[in-house]
């Protein structure tokens, strides 16, 4: 019913107004778009005009980022590591950093622009984001030249080492055995042994407030 109504409205007023089908709302203003339309894609779409180098980003990083992420991107306490971890992805303690794991440089820019510094989000201007991004690429040995100018044209051309390390969800193929399989109901295993216990680690919080058996 409503869709019919909107179709009728569309036919009647199509040349007139942008918001005709809803009959509600208004077009975004230029100021709203400038402030909100801040997403960036790997192909560079969405990158603002601007420039920065690793040399320019160093002071900014050390002042605004290093207290959590560490002087060398090593991460303080449980704050995220941003550098290091090359060759660790197949090991016992994989370290997922920009250099070892992230597929695209644009992600760094998009995230800085949306969420960093933690507690003072959306405070960096484009030149500062380019400079910090360049510095992070330097910490990860992706950019070797401290004076390389990162800008809206050069950023999409920089490739991260693990770009090819990702593939689309293949569970329905790789895990096809989980579908439509015979299900055993009786005497399915010969013997059941306990192989691991949470109590060994004893890391569960709030055990004092949990119910107790007296």
């Amino acid at each position: 019913m409503w869709r019919w109504a909107s179709l009728v409205l569309l036919l009647l007023f199509a040349p007139l107004a942008q918001a005709a089908p809803l009959g509600l709302g208004r077009a975004p203003t230029a100021a709203e778009l400038e402030a909100w339309d801040i997403d960036v894609r790997p192909d560079g779409k969405g990158l603002p005009k601007g420039r920065g180098t690793a040399r320019e980003g160093e002071a900014l990083y050390q002042e605004r980022c290093a207290s959590c992420h560490g002087e060398f991107g090593e991460g303080i306490n449980r704050w995220p590591e941003l550098a290091g971890g090359e060759g660790s992805l197949t090991g016992d303690r994989p370290l997922r950093t920009i250099g070892s794991y992230w597929p695209y440089v644009s992600t760094v820019f998009d995230f800085l622009r949306h969420a960093m510094p933690f507690g003072n989000a959306q405070s960096l201007v484009p030149d500062e984001i380019y400079a910090v991004t360049a510095y992070l690429l330097g910490l990860n040995d992706v950019l070797k030249d401290e004076d390389f100018e990162l800008n809206e044209r050069t950023l999409p051309s920089i490739r991260l080492p693990n770009e090819a390390g990702f593939f689309d969800d293949d569970r329905e193929v790789a895990e096809a055995a989980f579908w439509n399989r015979p299900v055993c109901m009786v005497a399915c295993t010969a013997e059941v042994r306990i192989t691991g216990r949470a109590a060994v680690l004893d890391v569960t919080p709030d055990t004092k407030s949990a119910p107790r058996i007296e």
């Binding site: 894609r41 992805l89 695209y104 998009d110 969420a115 593939f167 689309d168």
Partner: peptide
């Protein structure tokens, strides 16, 4: 848009690292 954005939450997080060092992405379901 016409292509995914590959944001932080769908690249550095919420991708499933397998034993061979490769990772599944877009494992939404």
């Amino acid at each position: 848009g016409d292509a995914p954005w590959h944001t932080r939450e769908e690249t550095s997080k919420y991708t499933d690292l397998l034993a061979d060092g490769r990772a599944r992405r877009f494992t939404w379901v």
